[in-house]
Simulated assay, not measured.
Amino acid sequence: MSVSLPLVFVLGAFAWGAVKFLGVRTWVVVLIALFGFWLSHTFLAPAIEDGTRTGVTVINRTHN
């Protein structure tokens, strides 16, 4: 069985859980999100995308 969820939903649920149960401050979550957007516009973006795709492939056990 395969479930398809948008990454934004998964990250949002994780952030909500971190704020609710771990006591992480909301401004820290916002700061991390903004840093992620900034990081996506740097030279590291291709490596991050490749690593993310590889991780999804490993988790889903699919091959190209």
Rank of each mutant, 00 (worst) to 15 (best):
V58S: 06
V28S: 07
T52K: 03
A45T: 11
P6T: 04
V19G: 06
G17A: 01
F9L: 13
V28D: 08
V19D: 04
V19H: 09
A13R: 09
W38K: 08
H41W: 14
W27G: 09
V56G: 11
S4H: 09
L39F: 02
L34N: 08
I32N: 06
R53W: 07
H63W: 06
F37M: 14
T52C: 13
G17N: 01
R53V: 12
F35R: 06
A47M: 15
V8Q: 10
V10C: 04
W38Q: 00
G23W: 05
A33M: 12
F21S: 11
A18C: 07
H41E: 15
W38R: 02
S4N: 12
V10Y: 02
L34M: 02
G12F: 04
P6I: 03
V10L: 05
H63D: 03
L22P: 04
W27D: 13
T62S: 11
G23Y: 05
M1T: 08
G12V: 01
I32V: 14
E49V: 15
L39H: 01
V28E: 11
H41D: 14
F14I: 10
W16R: 10
L34R: 01
V56C: 11
L44I: 15
L5C: 08
T52I: 14
F14P: 01
V24I: 09
T54R: 15
L11S: 03
V10S: 05
L34P: 11
N60T: 05
L44D: 13
R61P: 00
F37V: 15
S4E: 07
R61I: 05
R61A: 02
G55N: 03
A33C: 14
L39I: 00
V29Y: 11
L11R: 12
F14A: 07
G55Q: 02
T26W: 10
W38T: 13
V24F: 03
N64W: 05
F37G: 14
D50P: 13
G51P: 07
T54H: 11
V8C: 03
V28I: 12
S40P: 03
